[in-house]
Design a protein around this nucleic acid. Structure first.
Lengths: 179, 179
DNA sequence: TCATAATATATCAAATTGATATATTCAAAA
DNA sequence: TTTTGAATATATCAATTTGATATATTATGA
């Protein structure tokens, strides 16, 4: 068997703050949590059906006119319990796949120039993503009122700390590759 | 369609250094590249068959007695070309899933104590993995003779740089969570 | 001799991705 | 006013990957 559906806890976590549609959930995932987690419609919609079947969430149709078949989901007590249980488990997987490092590891096949190019591509992407994270950070430090503000800020701080480490490494790597 | 089989380039990269069996490939993946890439038998064996079909690798049976049905794979020119082409493409995916950050992001549901516990679990795991990386680094700095030594060292340096950033963040996070 | 760990290949259900299909609503340009 | 394109919204599919399990052989050590 494959591992448990991890998308479930993402959905439960988001629904613990507000009722959302599947499309809303996708947008939330693509927003502030995008740099440490991803999710696709192909996993979200089937999970929503399975979780409603399991009684962790409850669907309802939007009744305001002109909202087509919009389906909102609300978390149940059972869902809240499942979310809390997961939060209290020590196990956490943290699966990382850096294609950039894979290219560097096998860099000997092509040589230093190609490797430098790959480091530069990575560096350029990280620089622009770091700017986005710094804007998030600024906004979070401004609105201290939000109850969950502290938790959101911590994840953004994680991103900034690691992205800055990436950039330091890029500089070192280029230096070594240029001899 | 799902994205291209990424396991292919891992296999090609490893076979560009030496002929290996599927089992050997799994051991290599579980070794020095484990902290930035993973792979399972369930993806390796089917990929080996598909790649031989595509002419990128060539299998042969070990003929020494007592080696059971051991099947070695050798990279072909076609395989080397595919590997080089991939190395020269700017696109690189770097997919990260930090369950630890997910728990922290939704930490408001349980509160600071649980969040601190989750940070501590992460911190403890990273500390022991960092020690392993430092041993790798020490070994790599000793054997300067290996042609690919520089490329291997760069990936390990990446690991050390980021893991140390993780630990700095853990300290900050615990401080913030304790108020 | 016997047990068990390591080696070795293979397959499967479940989870996930990335793409595609379909349809509606909204905003802006023609 | 119409139309065109972007955003919204749900759903499904093939391909990839994981993690587990099945099966069998060889090596090691008690």
């Amino acid at each position: 068997m494959a591992k448990d559906r991890k998308i479930d806890v993402v959905i439960l976590g988001l629904l613990s703050h507000e009722d959302l549609t599947g499309y809303d959930i996708k947008k939330r995932i693509d927003g502030a949590i995008n740099f440490f987690w991803k999710g696709s419609f192909g996993s979200i919609y089937p999970a929503l059906n399975a979780m409603e079947e399991a009684g962790q969430i409850k669907s309802y149709k939007a009744d305001d006119p002109g909202s087509r078949g919009k389906i909102f989901y609300h978390i149940t007590q059972k869902g809240i319990n499942a979310l809390k249980q997961w939060l209290n488990e020590d196990q956490a997987s943290n699966e990382l796949k850096y294609e950039t490092l894979l290219k560097l590891y096998f860099g000997g096949v092509e040589g230093a120039d190609t490797a430098i190019r790959n480091v530069e591509v990575f560096e350029s992407n990280i620089k622009s993503e770091l700017e986005v994270l710094k804007i998030y950070e600024k906004n979070l430090r401004a609105e201290q009122d939000n109850e969950d503000h502290k938790f959101f800020l911590l994840t953004v701080m994680f991103g900034i700390e690691t992205y800055e480490a990436y950039l330091r490494w890029c500089a070192k790597a280029k230096k070594i590759l240029m001899n």
